[in-house]
């Protein structure tokens, strides 16, 4: 029997250090995806909220596409397709240039697109929950459209959207596992390599599940704190 302590140690014989590096990659990928996923999701929600028909349509196409495609397929499309497409595009200007979408960036773009499509739905339903009187009230006290959005609507919007966004974050964290398929050294890839090499598949994949679970629990705790903090200023209804 192999000694599990050696296998999980941080030394040269053990996989602990490799897996720890994998955890960092997973967390970094999820954290890097979050801000731009949120920003695009918000913009798409604005477009879908707008009175302008063409904007609504453009926004709806975006969500239809990125909610409809399997995440794994989106990842392949970005990693291989976009790479070849951009390469050809750049070659038009400079025959020698090489563009590299590394697997981290590909993962970020693909997961961000999926995340933003779902986030736009969350934002949109949060928009619907804010009565029109809030906008009118903002205008009535002389705020501009932008100011109303920033000072009146956004704070309420975030509070309403927070639970939904928390869910999306957990989904994002889990979806990062897919990048292991395109070779990014995340938790699942590192444990997968260890499982292949040591033939202790149950140990390492079980460990992978436990690490994801720990990350999910940590996230829930953090989100609980953020929700309590953001709820402080709000009116209890």
């Amino acid at each position: 029997m192999t000694d599990y302590r050696t296998l999980l140690s941080f030394g040269p014989e053990g996989w602990g250090d490799d897996i720890a590096a994998g955890v960092l990659v997973t967390v970094a990928l999820a954290l890097a995806t979050l801000p731009f996923g949120l920003a695009i999701g918000f913009l798409v929600a604005l477009a879908k909220q707008s009175g302008e028909k063409t904007l609504r349509l453009a926004g709806n196409i975006y969500t239809t596409v990125f909610r409809g495609l399997p995440e794994l397929l989106t990842l392949f499309l970005v990693f291989y397709g976009a790479q070849i497409g951009i390469q050809q595009f750049v070659r038009l200007f400079d025959a020698k240039a090489t563009v590299e979408i590394n697997s981290f960036v590909a993962g970020m773009v693909a997961l961000g697109a999926v995340f933003s499509a779902y986030a736009s739905e969350v934002f949109q339903s949060a928009f619907r929950a804010i009565p029109n009187g809030q906008y009118e009230g903002g205008y009535a006290i002389g705020l501009s459209k932008l100011q109303t959005m920033r000072l009146v609507i956004l704070p309420q919007l975030i509070r309403i959207a927070l639970p939904g966004l928390g869910n999306l974050w957990l989904i994002l964290l889990k979806d990062t596992a897919l990048v292991s398929v395109i070779g990014l050294a995340d938790i699942l890839r590192q444990t997968g390599i260890a499982a292949r090499v040591t033939r202790e598949a149950f140990l390492f994949f079980g460990l992978a599940c436990l690490i994801y679970l720990a990350l999910a629990i940590l996230s829930s705790i953090a989100f609980g704190a953020i929700e309590r903090w953001s709820g402080k200023g709000g009116v209890q209804r």
Binding site: I40, L77, I86, K96, A97, T98, V99, E100, I101
Partner: peptide, 25 residues
């Protein structure tokens, strides 16, 4: 697949990778 918003994003994101990769090529 050329998708309006994504291309812009992907381009800006790859600008970084390109600046690093150009020398070795």
């Amino acid at each position: 697949m050329g998708i309006s918003r994504r291309i812009v994003l992907a381009l800006s994101a790859t600008a970084l990778a390109m600046s690093m990769g150009a020398a070795s090529a």
